[in-house]
């Protein structure tokens, strides 16, 4: 008997999706703990979903291990600036620059990500925070997301898998001679 190629390629122990490893209540508890410690003791995340504005910013850290993916914090730009002021407290400059905001929300993502990683099966490694446009959701089944309000403003924390990879065009077909070399 010959096995079909896809059966051969299937791993003996398929990777678990995040929802099999963690629930929303855990993500919410981790986020709340980070908020209380970093933003302020009286700062609450209210578990009420709100519509994110069109102009958002995201910060994330990657977790690589038995589960591989990203822990992504997304909020509106103004909320990100408000968060930065709350984190910096008296040390906040009169005018915030992009670097301050990236640093602040990156650090929140880092703390939330570190604690998400700790709740996942290991060993795993945690990347450095990245700020920009959120990584795309590759597998909607592999997402654990909470939508909350902070000071009435919407904010999302998404723990999302990096697998399976999105299909990428093969460079061989796209451009057989990327350096301009000729046969």
């Amino acid at each position: 008997m010959t096995l079909a190629p896809e059966s051969v390629a299937r791993p003996a122990h398929p990777r678990q999706v995040i929802t099999a490893l963690m629930d929303e209540a855990t993500v919410e508890a981790i986020a709340n703990e980070a908020w209380t410690a970093l933003v302020g003791e009286d700062e609450l995340l209210v578990p009420v979903p709100g519509d994110l504005p069109a102009d958002t910013v995201s910060a994330w850290v990657d977790v690589v291990g038995p589960w591989t993916g990203s822990v992504v914090l997304t909020t509106g730009r103004q909320t990100a600036a408000d968060l930065t002021r709350a984190l910096l407290g008296e040390a906040a400059p009169e005018l915030l620059d992009h670097e301050d905001v990236a640093d602040a929300i990156g650090e929140i993502a880092n703390v939330v990500g570190g604690n998400v990683k700790a709740a996942l099966p290991g060993p795993s490694t945690l990347g450095l925070p990245v700020v920009g446009e959120a990584p795309v959701v590759r597998n909607p089944e592999d997402v654990c997301r909470i939508d909350v309000l902070w000071r009435g403003q919407p904010l999302a924390v998404s723990v999302q898998g990096a697998l399976p990879p999105l299909p990428t065009p093969s460079p061989v077909h796209d451009n057989p001679h990327p350096n301009g070399a000729s046969l």
């Binding site: 970093l38 930065t84 984190l87 910096l88 407290g89 008296e90 040390a91 301050d100 640093d103 602040a104 990156g106 650090e107 880092n110 450095l128």
Partner: peptide, 12 residues
């Protein structure tokens, strides 16, 4: 710490 914000929080 590579984060200035986190250095401020640690100092605070």
């Amino acid at each position: 710490d590579d984060s200035r914000v986190m250095r401020q929080i640690v100092i605070r």
